[in-house]
Design a protein around this nucleic acid. Structure first.
Lengths: 146, 146
DNA sequence: TATTGTTATACTCTATAACTATA
DNA sequence: TATAGTTATAGAGTATAACAATA
């Protein structure tokens, strides 16, 4: 049995990241949405949201959100509604089409999880999640250092 | 002990993907290169390459490669050299600066792997790699279906 | 005829800076 | 004075289509 190296593990993580990206790209093609617009829609799941809050959540400039919302308004996924108490602000609000897209995202996510891990077995799944959590914790700590 | 769900595992994978992206973004800031240019440089590790081959490898249009190479020529990372036998073709060739950047990428990769998995222990590391390989295999199969 | 790379054009995401309307 | 959003401007990545030079 060959000893496995740390680099081999990192290579696997990178490969999985690429697969996740490819899967997202597939969803984009099918839905006609782009990654940034999907992310914005995803963040509307909790209800109508101001552009300022979206910019903060997405870690992007307010100007950028203006453009993304323009696109989603044009495609019919959201509308700009007046804020009930603050006349400066706008509530980005999903339309029926937008809500359907969000529901589709959730369903697609759950389906992928089932197909990837549905047959894994309880104990191995728990062990895998533990290892992933440890990796995430170390990675996060490294990112915060720099 | 709570039963862990497939969705929890997929959420971890997505979180790790985001961390990988963030780490790449950090490298971009430090090096002054962009993700697409880093990927192109990375693919020059095997030696000078035609733009056509780069476009095929990166799954991107030839026109796009023209722009990326323009940028890397301007930053001094590569030069365009004539192909020895095909006068239509160009060999994108790393400069000393470009080769240094590629070496830096490799070093940074190895360092990250050591910091993430260096203390994991032989058996747990081997088990983790096995789980990751299984996940990659299932994911790849799913992507090829669609 | 087919291939390599470029020019022309266009769309999206991203950023900074200046500005308007409102708080 | 501070905040929410827009206009103006710019750069990077991406794409298609038409074209020149070469194979």
């Amino acid at each position: 049995m060959t000893a496995r190296s740390a680099t081999e593990a990192l290579d696997r993580i990178l490969r999985l990241s690429m697969l996740v990206s490819a899967d997202l790209a597939r969803y984009e093609r099918e839905s006609g949405l782009t990654a940034a617009r999907v992310e914005l829609l995803w963040r509307l799941a909790g209800g109508p949201t101001t552009q300022r809050a979206l910019a903060a959540a997405m870690e992007v400039t307010p100007r950028n959100v203006t453009g993304l919302v323009d696109g989603l308004v044009a495609s019919g996924h959201v509308t700009r509604e007046p804020h009930p108490t603050d006349r400066r602000a706008i509530l980005v609000t999903p339309t029926a089409l937008g809500s359907e897209a969000i529901a589709g995202l959730r369903a697609s996510h759950a389906d992928l999880a089932r197909q990837l891990f549905g047959d894994l077995g309880r104990d191995r799944l728990a062990g895998f999640i533990t290892l992933l959590d440890e990796t995430i914790a170390r990675f996060s700590a490294l990112m915060e250092e720099s």
